[in-house]
Design a protein around this nucleic acid. Structure first.
Lengths: 207, 207, 207, 207
DNA sequence: TATGAATGAGAATTCATTCAT
DNA sequence: GATGAATGAATTCTCATTCAT
């Protein structure tokens, strides 16, 4: 455990430094991957010395895990927002739009998770089986109930969720490819993606 | 240039060894990423000594590039197969099924590319702008013509292609997550994915 | 850039270690040449670990360059001391004596430069064309003016300088040969060389 | 011992290959130094495979030694030509001119020896103490007798020889520096050197 | 807390030499 | 004789982590 993570409540300076490290780590890890990043890079990015950084975190791996854990809830917020009480088509449209927006505004977070999952999630085995699975099971249940109520085309709710994740996160994770093939760097691509995906899912899932 | 890559045509042993190295490299690179892989690992996996491996390839990077280049055409085969003469709905169904099949049968290749793109494609800048872009432009043209002929719902053909890539490759790239959330390792997931995606795209893109 | 070469002014320990490394490098490089020397040798000679050494210098080449640059001005001091106001014969005598003295007291520095020049000065192309050329041009001008004033035998001043360099540095660079052929290790050889060369140049250059 | 160096007299092909290797080795060793040269470079330069090269020579070191030994007599020819029967001033003039000519026509040989001596002649300890020393002693004797006969300024004959070596070989060994400082690549420099050195030595050594 | 200094364990690559045919 | 193949022993350099203050 990091020396600065005792039982006492964190001081202001501890919170600030922790924050700076995690922000720097997000930048570096999402760009170079876990193995391709060095503690030196993170320390430089955070504007502090390496030993000082390691005073707050128990090593490179600990930073990575802390980062993933901290981002998980933010990352899942849009999914959490899906309400069984809402209109299915509205809920899905909102979710798709929110996810595209996240790819535009938080591509680093998306790439961080993608990198981790891609390599088998070696650092966060519990996150997948825990919080995430529970949430997905719950939302899959809602989707299922909508289907049974005839408000949504019958299909496998898990694969439905996967397809929304895949299509929306694609704009963060495969950004280079997207920009290269579209031949433009304009942010318009996110608008276009939103429009296209909204159409695809609403038409594809309409009962 | 590698010592064994002169102007002469390769000998039998050269082809065999080259093959073994690339197969081993695919295994290792797709699992740990470029930076996370060591030449030692690849050599061991290929059952040869490190210097011997470097007798055939000019270093770690050269192996990686050779691998990516060699896989590119295989990887693009399904897209290439889309014919402007076929029935749009049939062509898309076939493409989606072929891509899901590739995710099942060649997940390592998919992850290799995903890893590379995710980090900005530092090793293959030309592959994206060259062969790939040309092919995608061509197929986007076909899709466009179908839309104009009223045989396909009007939408952005590039984003259409992206959505097929994203949803199908998801089953290779995010395999751990998929298996964890589905709670099973059964290969049935690929069937289910195919069925779901076929429905999604056919309904979503029907004119 | 070396980790320890930031913008801050160097600490005491930095100066000391840097000094130790350069001293060790002088010893090793001048004995085995650049390619024949290993960082390990230098580290051992300096009494520190290899990574520690590389904490202060950015690699083998950087040590070499730093060494050459640092020695250049010391090395050129005798030439710089030649004054257009002095008596030509006195100035030349003094210069020859100073150069022989340097070969006796600083043979390693001489060999270091000789090694570098011998292989085409691959590490210090700018040192030759810069500082050195400017200084030599200036002193050649002084020699020329002496010749025009009839105070010195007319000859090519550049070749004059070369001949002084060659004859004096010979006692450092070709030391093994000199000692072997003279059949003695006595320091007397430097006295004898001085005497002989003084006579040669004074008689040879007298107007 | 090399496999091809048995007791039998060498075949034509053996002589040819040996020749090619030594010529290639001269080129490579004189450019990069012993340690800086690789057997690969020499083999390539000689237009043969590495194992084939090593079939004729017993390793890198053996090539080096063979080369140095073979060149020694050529290298010493001008010195050998000094005759006690000739006119001292003529003999010296001829010797100086011959040595400058060698620097122009055989700079690689000069650099090869310089490199070797500079690093303490680790490969040819016996050459210095043997053949060379004997020859120098002999010629020093001739010079001494000339001095005693009043035909040559009295001075140390060994240092006299050193000074001729140093000044003339300088144009081969320190070629880069010479060309840089003269600001020209013209072969005129050898003429100028000859003229200057002839004057220097004749005036300096005239009785 | 903070940081300059230090290091052991790699990791990529080179190279002289040997093997096997 | 000749050469494609193979390797052990370096050699340079990196990096996460620890030490000392």
């Amino acid at each position: 455990m990091a020396r600065a993570a005792g039982t006492q409540r964190p001081t202001r300076i501890q919170r600030e430094k922790t924050e700076r490290v995690l922000e720097a780590a997000l930048e570096v890890f999402s760009t170079y991957g876990y193995r391709g990043s060095t503690v030196d890079q993170i320390a430089t990015q955070a504007g502090m010395s390496k030993p000082n950084l390691l005073y707050y975190f128990d090593g490179k791996s600990a930073i990575h895990v802390a980062l993933l854990e901290r981002l998980m809830s933010t990352w899942l917020a849009p999914l959490r927002a899906i309400s069984g009480d809402g209109d299915p088509m509205d809920e899905i449209r909102t979710y798709v739009r929110a996810k595209v927006k996240m790819s535009r505004d938080h591509p680093r977070e998306s790439r961080l998770f993608a990198n981790e999952i891609l390599q088998g999630a070696p650092h966060i085995p519990s996150l997948l089986t825990g919080e995430l699975k529970q949430l997905v099971d719950e939302k899959a249940g809602i989707l299922k109930s909508w289907m049974q109520a005839g408000k949504l085309a019958a299909c496998d709710p898990y694969h439905l969720i996967f397809s929304i994740w895949a299509t929306t996160q694609h704009y963060a994770d495969f950004d280079v490819q997207v920009r290269t093939l579209l031949g433009t760097d304009s942010d318009q691509r996110f608008e276009d993606a939103s429009t296209y995906l909204e159409t695809l899912f609403l038409r594809g899932l309409r009962p």
